[in-house]
Amino acid sequence: MSDSTAIAHGAEAGAHHEHPPYQRHHFETVNQQFDATNFAMWLFLLTEIMFFGGLFTAYLILRNWYYPAFVEGSHQLSIFWGTANTTVLIISSFTMAMSVWNAQMRRKSALLLCLVLTFILGLVFLGIKGIEWHEKWVKFHVPGLHYSDQTFLNPASDHEVYAEYHDKPLAPDMASKAQQYFFLYFAMTGMHALHMVIGICILGFMIVRAKAGAYTSGHVTFVENFGLYWHFVDIVWIFLFPLLYLISRHQ
């Protein structure tokens, strides 16, 4: 364990210990502080895995129950926008990783640039998500609020999608289950977007702090831990993208 490096010292030595200003009083060394907060962040991500885990479980089960409805539901998503968004998010993950590197190297302006890029890419992602959600609204595919089975009872009515997939009409019973697909689509992308929004807010805060030079004086813990969060959100999307957009393209 890394705390074996913790050095026991008497009270008088402790009083005159030279600590960097960012070291909290209850840690023995900066390394211990870094290890502890880093580990805490990982544990938090563990809870996030389980948080999304519930949704993934629901998706898996209901998809198997209402397979045809889920297939036709996913045909309503645009692979173009989905791919674009995946690319945006992957690049933002890259710029985030570079932010951590720049902070470690104490390159302030490069760090700022990378953080701002990440911030912008995050907004772009949400913008594209907004376009997609808007399209769902227009097509009455927002279950609970603005919904109709029409597309699945009569796929030919939706010319664009029909031209590509030639979906067969579903029996009314099955067609009504397409809303389960959209429930989960909105729950999953919504939860993901909520995490993005939180992340973007923290990014904004970090940009202000980075301008003041808070992360380029050797204390990169915050940037590093936020990076973990951001990458995690990216990973969730890496799974959402094939599950929601891709795997049913051919069925």
Binding site: E48, G53, L62, W65, Q179, Q180
Partner: peptide
């Protein structure tokens, strides 16, 4: 966290009518 997401789905079911647990909607 699994309880958390479950409760979120319950609250969404009551507020906006998400139906993952609703047998009438196939949940």
């Amino acid at each position: 966290p699994v309880l958390a997401i479950t409760l979120v789905l319950i609250v969404l079911e009551r507020t906006v009518g998400i139906g993952v647990f609703d047998p009438a909607k196939g949940g």
